[in-house]
Design a protein around this nucleic acid. Structure first.
Length: 599
RNA sequence: GGCCCAGUAGUUCAGUUGGUUAGAACGCCGGCCUGUCACGCCGGAGGUCGAGGGUUCGAGUCCCUUCUGGGUCGCCA
């Protein structure tokens, strides 16, 4: 096959393949792109030519141009070509309604094959059903699909909208190092050995946290960055080892200023991309309330099914499962599954099974039949009064199914949260067109880690406690609330942040509570404590998971669909085959020996 | 690290109680065809059944181990 050298040929692209329409009829036009499909009728050859913008049908006819027609016989899927010809309005009966360019076609009088192509391993169509590992191996082909192109276009538009908004509000986009130091606390770091400093390592940033605080010390006042972050933890449908944060930090602000700026930004973004009006301000719920009503700090507010605490009603019950749970300091809470008394035994059993899978010992249920009679395996353990009170508290009406978990607060909340979301799906209560934002505020500052036998920061060690709770740090650390806030959308955490500690004494106190010794604090964070001595403004900010935001904007179920070159669950890139072994010489330069990798 | 799902032609799948030469559709290759747009018609090629081991006269099918991809719990300040 003869391939033309493009240079020296005289086709210049005049239009994109999605552009031409009836108004361009009889014009001379030149297109470039990929062969989407070929329909060879013998005397005439139709090609669907595709570029990023769309598809145009081009026609090769012996009577129009013999040479182009002969060459067109060689065309196959995904060949890259340049064509020139005349735009022809199609007769009415030949109009293709499915194409934006369906009213016209291009009668080709000049064809240049710019490149041939192997037959692709799967076809470039939107509704494909191909194993994802094949898509990832040939990601450059997968990304030719309109669906994937649309996702990346939306991602690009979203970052532009965010930049536009923040530039407009006086923010500076500042880059921070990718090679930085490993810090204790938080996720596992990705480490990078240093050739010039044998035996020492950089860490890739988990987030630009410390640098953005130092930029506040530096007087930058308003900073943002679209920052790549790295965490060496296990992957999920919405988690990748490298991901992108929209990182924001401001000086001289408190919680309300950060929240209101971000509400405006999110409203601007969703309006800009999805053309929907997002009502601001967003509702706020305290962490405590969120756990009470939903059992989670990221509640989905699109539906009800709220959790109800009945602990006080059954603390003295003869039903030991309930009363002993209370004695041990646990919780008994329930959900009223409205209208679900009609569930079959099998359906109820599957809810019980689900609860057990998530750690509950069981799931108690009370079914209020349409005739107001009660069906329940625990009825015989409860007094009439207890039953009456429980049903009353739960708002139980004929036809309702009441579900209860009795366990530690942690398990009770966790299981009922899972149950709530399962029920919502089962009952079709989840509306994909709703965007229910909520700020979760007043997170606890600390939690106790049983494994390490010490307090750890829930957010991070630089989060400021609420002023009125500072005295509690010495007496009841678990009761200290933080100036921390998360933005939650439909049960997904989009981002979170806090007002930071900005003076040395408080930061030292925080390290102290965390059991980080003065020497260790000095060794790991000495530079920050030092910086705090030089006039640090009060400051705070927030960071979003950009990938998750884009998942919402594109309606993606999977984070890999909004990342051009994502990694598999084993953190591998099937395209480049990273990670890989390296040349022993490289290891030698880095003073690294590989031990036996079999455990 | 635990639990669950999947792996058969380039792709998506079927494959009976373990039994002849492992099938289909799409794609691919060749031929015919001047109005197709999922073009049509005729013909053809294409398989280490993820890998290794075991049971058996005989394994795509049963058992064990392992690899890969996915979901999830732990983990992710």
């Amino acid at each position: 096959m003869i391939f033309m050298i493009y240079k020296g040929e005289n086709i210049t692209r005049t239009h994109m393949c999605g552009e031409l329409n009836a108004h361009d009829a009889d014009k001379e036009a030149s297109l470039m792109g990929w062969v989407q499909r070929r329909r060879d009728l013998g005397g005439v050859i139709f090609i669907d030519l595709r570029d990023r913008s769309g598809i145009t049908q081009i026609v090769f006819d012996r009577k129009i141009d013999e040479e182009a027609f002969k060459l067109a016989d060689k065309l196959r899927n995904e060949f890259v070509i340049a064509v020139r010809g005349k735009v022809k309005k199609r007769p009415l009966e030949n109009v293709n309604q499915k194409l934006s360019t369906g009213e016209i076609e291009l009668l080709v009088n000049k064809l240049i094959i710019l490149n041939k192509s192997n037959t692709p391993p799967f076809s470039i169509e939107d509704d494909i059903n191909v194993d994802e590992s094949i898509r990832l191996k040939y990601r450059y082909i997968d990304l030719r699909r309109t669906h994937m192109q649309k996702n990346l276009i939306i991602r690009s538009k979203a970052t532009k909208a965010i930049r536009d908004f923040l530039y407009d509000r006086g923010f500076l986009e500042i880059e921070t190092p990718m090679l930085t130091r490993s810090t204790p606390e938080g996720a596992r770091d990705y480490l990078v050995p240093s050739r010039l400093n044998p035996g020492e390592f950089y860490a890739l940033p988990q987030s630009p946290q410390l640098f953005k605080q130092l930029l506040m010390v530096a007087g930058m006042e308003k900073y943002f960055q679209i920052a790549r972050c790295f965490r060496d933890e296990d992957l999920r449908a919405d988690r990748q080892p490298e991901f992108t944060q929209v990182d924001i930090e401001m000086s001289f602000v408190d919680v309300d200023e950060v929240i209101s700026l971000n509400e405006e930004m999110i409203a601007y973004l969703f309006n800009n991309i999805l053309d929907i009006n997002v009502a601001i301000p967003f509702p706020r719920i305290t962490y405590k309330k969120a756990l009470e009503k939903y059992g989670t700090d990221k509640p989905d507010l699109r539906y009800g099914l709220e959790l109800v605490n009945i602990s006080d009603l059954v603390s003295k019950s003869d039903f030991k499962v309930f009363s002993s749970t209370i004695k041990k300091g646990g919780l008994i809470k329930g959900i009223n599954a409205k209208g679900c008394a009609s569930f079959s035994r099998r359906e109820i059993d599957s809810l019980v099974e689900l609860s057990k899978n998530f750690g509950a010992k069981g799931l108690a249920w009370i079914s209020i039949e349409p005739d107001s009679s009660i069906k329940s395996p625990i009825q015989k353990f409860l007094t009439e009064e207890e039953l009456y009170n429980i049903i009353g508290r739960m708002g139980g009406k004929p036809g309702d199914l009441l579900l209860f978990v009795a366990d530690t607060a942690k398990i009770t909340n966790f299981v009922l949260n899972q149950l709530r979301s399962e029920l919502a799906n089962k009952l079709n209560l989840v509306d994909d067109n709703k965007y229910n934002f909520v700020w979760v505020v007043e997170f606890p500052l600390l939690e106790f880690d049983e494994d390490q036998n010490r307090y750890v920061a829930i957010h991070h060690p630089f989060t400021s406690p609420m002023e009125e709770d500072i005295p509690l740090m010495d007496t009841e650390p678990l009761k200290v609330r933080a100036k921390a806030y998360d933005l939650v959308l439909n049960g997904v955490e989009l981002g979170g942040g806090s007002i930071r500690i900005y003076y040395e004494e408080l930061q030292k106190k925080m390290f102290n509570v965390l059991g980080i010794s003065e020497e260790e604090a000095k060794e790991k964070f000495g530079f920050l404590l030092e910086a705090f001595k030089y006039g640090t403004p009060p400051h705070g900010g927030l960071a979003y998971g950009l990938d998750r935001i884009v998942m919402f904007l594109t309606g993606s179920e999977n984070i890999r669909d909004v990342i051009a070159f994502p990694k598999t669950q084993h953190a591998a890139c099937l395209l480049t085959k990273a990670p890989s072994k390296v040349d022993p010489k490289q290891l030698e330069e880095l003073f690294i020996d590989i031990r036996d990798t079999k455990k």
